[in-house]
Simulated assay, not measured.
Amino acid sequence: MIRRRVLVSGLVQGVFYRDTCRREAAGLGVAGWVRNLPDGRVEAVFEGEREAVERMVAWCGRGSSRSAVDHVDVTEEPPEGLTHFAVTL
């Protein structure tokens, strides 16, 4: 079990980034959350098996079909034992 926090910049708000992220995470069995930040970035936390979390981090660099990702910052954190994935405000 691993945990990663990502901060995604670019055109990532108002383009279904969070909802698509939620669907991708659910399909991979990854827990965590995703939210918009006031500065226009998106922040997400992913917890799960290494391969699945790494796939989510890679997805963040592509984003939804309408997004245009400029940069992804990734931070390793200790897992907290999250059990589901949520879109938060």
Rank of each mutant, 00 (worst) to 15 (best):
F85E: 04
A52H: 07
R18P: 09
P78H: 02
T20R: 08
M1W: 07
E47T: 01
N36Y: 12
E76G: 01
C60D: 12
D19L: 13
E77I: 00
V6P: 05
S64L: 09
F85A: 03
N36V: 11
R18C: 06
E43Y: 03
R4W: 03
P79F: 05
A58R: 15
S65R: 13
T20W: 03
V57I: 14
R35K: 15
D39M: 02
V53G: 01
D73H: 02
S9N: 03
R50V: 06
R5V: 03
F85S: 02
L82P: 01
M1A: 11
A26M: 13
Q13P: 06
E76S: 08
L28Y: 10
H71Q: 08
P79E: 09
R66H: 08
L89D: 15
G61F: 13
V6M: 06
H84Q: 15
L11D: 04
V57C: 11
S67A: 15
V69D: 09
D70C: 04
I2K: 01
R4V: 05
E49A: 11
S67C: 11
E80S: 05
E47A: 01
R3D: 00
E77L: 07
V87H: 09
P79T: 07
L7A: 01
A58D: 15
V87Y: 06
E76Y: 00
W59L: 10
R35Q: 15
P38L: 04
R23N: 05
S65D: 09
R35G: 13
D39Y: 05
V42E: 11
E51A: 11
P79S: 07
E54L: 10
V42F: 12
P79W: 05
L7C: 05
E47P: 00
T20Q: 07
E80N: 01
S67D: 12
W33R: 09
W59V: 10
E24R: 13
E54N: 08
G27T: 15
S67V: 11
V87E: 12
G29C: 05
D19K: 14
G27H: 15
W33H: 13
C60M: 13
V34C: 15
W33C: 12
R35V: 13
A44C: 12
D19A: 14
P38H: 07
V69T: 11
G32T: 00
D19Y: 14
F46D: 03
V69Y: 10
G48D: 04
R5Q: 02
R66M: 08
V74S: 02
T75W: 00
L89N: 15
W59H: 08
D39E: 09
V12H: 07
W33K: 09
I2G: 01
L11I: 12
H84A: 15
S64N: 08
T88V: 14
L7I: 11
R41K: 08
E51S: 05
S9A: 06
E51G: 00
G63D: 13
L82W: 01
G14F: 14
E51W: 01
A52P: 01
R5G: 00
V6W: 03
R62G: 04
V42P: 11
S65W: 07
G48I: 06
E77G: 00
S65M: 09
A86W: 13
E49Q: 10
V53L: 03
A68S: 14
A26K: 14
A68R: 14
A26N: 12
H84P: 03
M1T: 10
V87A: 10
R41T: 14
F85Q: 04
